[in-house]
Simulated scan of single mutants.
Amino acid sequence: MGELIGYMRVSKADGSQVLDLQKDALLHAGVGDQMIYEDFASGKKDDRSGLDACVKALRPGDTLVVWKLDRLGRDLRHLVTTVDDLSKRGVGFRVLSGQMPIDTSSAQGKLMFGIFASLAEFERELIRERTIAGLASARARGRVGGRKATMTSAKIRLAQASMGKPETVVADLCKELGISRQTLYRHVGPDGVLREDGKKALGVL
């Protein structure tokens, strides 16, 4: 049986009281005091070093526990992607309170997890379709030839969605994006994970 690992986040607007509520709820749910990761958001920059460390610590069979769903995601896209990644890694997920309590050990929780995975796939396909349509439109306007364009955010997202899929042919993907294989691999790994250049281009710390 895996570990219960907790994550909590508080902002200036929340105040320390919310942090106490989160910690009490996590401890009551069985999360060990040493297994709780936390972040303190301030101003416009929402630093998530605690979440990054938490996600790295999770192993297959573990369960990530949060107080409310809004503690985990920066926005809906980030939330969907994070939950989908957990599911693929064999990590469980529990939301203790709020309008949408989730526990993947239950049938309802597994259903919710499946919905998140479907939403993530839907988002990836939308990005892929929009990028391909944008590239086709640019070619139709004569924006072809000359120096190869650098990787844009849209191209990186398309590469992320495509890489790692068994049906993806890297040579065809590079041709579609108008980049070299070397440029592709500087930004995105074979499994679709962002590399250093890709993180910099997207502003991901």
Rank of each mutant, 00 (worst) to 15 (best):
M1N: 11
M8P: 04
Q22E: 08
K44M: 12
L205N: 13
S162E: 12
G32V: 05
R139C: 05
S97C: 07
Y37G: 04
T168L: 01
L184R: 02
L173A: 02
L72M: 07
A140Y: 03
G189V: 02
S118P: 00
V170H: 01
T168E: 04
R157V: 01
V55D: 08
P60H: 10
G50E: 06
L202M: 15
A140W: 02
G30K: 02
R195K: 15
E176I: 03
M100L: 13
G30T: 03
D20T: 11
M8F: 06
R9G: 11
A117V: 10
P166W: 00
G50F: 06
L96I: 05
E176R: 09
A29E: 09
E38M: 10
K200C: 07
P190S: 14
L119M: 15
R124M: 13
R71T: 01
T131Y: 03
G15I: 08
T63P: 05
S118H: 09
S118W: 08
K199C: 11
F116D: 10
H187G: 04
Q99P: 02
L21T: 10
L111M: 14
R143M: 12
T81N: 11
A171I: 03
G6P: 08
I132P: 03
Q160E: 14
V18M: 11
P101T: 05
A53F: 05
L64Q: 09
R59S: 13
G43F: 05
M8A: 13
L177K: 01
T104E: 10
V83W: 05
